[in-house]
């Protein structure tokens, strides 16, 4: 098992600090979910981890070897970014096949046959210009490049943005298939949490340029609960625990709780339910004004 690690990463754009002392460890052979709000720093983190963007401070290594400008490390990684229909010079007139040819040239393990299959599956006209593609097709191209790269560590940034539900399901199936067959490492950053949550063996939550949690998804959720009932009873039962997003309707109060260990026995008089990853994340984000995650 290999480790892609980032230590004490700081990334500044001018005066703005986008990543604040990030420490992250990616173990190969797992599917990771990277979740965070818009502007939390997901893309920047991924850019820095893959040496596509220099870190202001910090070290990024793969098995102890630096990633920056290092052929050995870079050949094991694929970071497939969102395509943009415009460039700073006008519409993006690259054709899909230009991207595919470049991918073929630079990804060591590029699988052309697999790429062809996927192009057919997603029904892409490779002679079409990127600026003329729908959002869904652009996402599809991103996915095709990521999967066909056959890179040991494959990173997808918002791969399902713009895909309809049928295409999304297709995508999840493809990831599962590929992972089952090859055990490749996938890091998927997404907003559409609930659909993909059960895919993630480990989840990384980033907020405001800091990593708040990076844990085994199941263990993480096992210690999250939704507590509801009489306001006083709820407060008593959740004393000393990390409480998020308290909501009240009359005397009824609902809170989301993250305990230190799972299966806590809560006091009588409160209803205890499990929380989905999406709802937990939502509760953490809408903590409005209270302490950060």
């Amino acid at each position: 098992m290999s480790v892609l690690s980032g230590k004490n990463i700081v990334k500044k754009y001018g005066k703005e600090t986008v990543l604040k002392n990030v420490n992250i460890e990616i173990e190969t052979g797992k599917i990771y979910g990277l979740i965070g709000r818009n502007g939390a720093g997901k893309t920047t983190l991924l850019s820095v981890l893959t040496a596509q963007n220099p870190a202001t401070k910090g070290e990024i290594t793969l098995d102890g070897n630096p990633v920056w400008e290092n052929e050995k490390s870079l050949s094991r990684i694929c970071y497939s970014r969102e395509l943009s229909p415009v460039t700073m010079f006008g519409p993006n007139n690259f054709k899909v096949k230009d991207y595919l040819n470049a991918a073929k040239a630079f990804y060591v393990n590029w699988d052309g046959e697999y790429a062809k299959e996927l192009v057919k599956l997603f029904n892409i006209d490779i002679k079409k210009k990127i600026s003329k593609l729908s959002k869904g097709m652009m996402s599809a191209v991103t996915i095709i490049i990521a999967l066909a790269s056959k890179a040991e560590i494959t990173i997808l940034d918002e791969p399902v943005a713009g895909l309809d539900v049928v295409a999304r399901e297709q995508f999840y199936k493809l990831i599962i298939e590929e992972y089952s067959e090859t055990g490749r490492t996938f890091i998927i950053s997404t907003h559409i949490i609930e659909e993909a949550a059960s895919l993630f063996e480990r989840v990384i939550i980033i907020d405001n340029g800091e990593i708040k949690f990076q844990e085994n998804t199941e263990e993480f959720l096992a210690r999250a609960y939704r507590i509801s009932g009489d306001a006083d009873a709820v407060d008593k039962a959740t004393e000393g625990l990390k409480v998020y997003h308290p909501e009240s309707l009359g005397r009824n109060k609902v809170v989301t709780v993250l305990a230190d260990k799972p299966d806590e026995n809560f006091a009588e008089g409160v209803q205890v339910e499990a929380v989905s990853l999406q709802n937990l994340f939502y509760a953490m984000c809408t903590n409005e004004g209270r302490e950060a995650m």
Binding site: T50, Q52, E69, N70, E71, L74, S75, I77, C78, Y79, R81, T87, M88, F89, F94, Y99, A102, A103, A105, F106, Y107
Partner: peptide
């Protein structure tokens, strides 16, 4: 050449080429 840094080379860089 003007198009290179912000467009063409950017794409190549995003695919794992080194700057040199």
């Amino acid at each position: 050449s003007v198009y290179s840094p912000g467009w063409y080379d950017s794409m190549v860089l995003s695919m794992g080429a080194r700057r040199k």
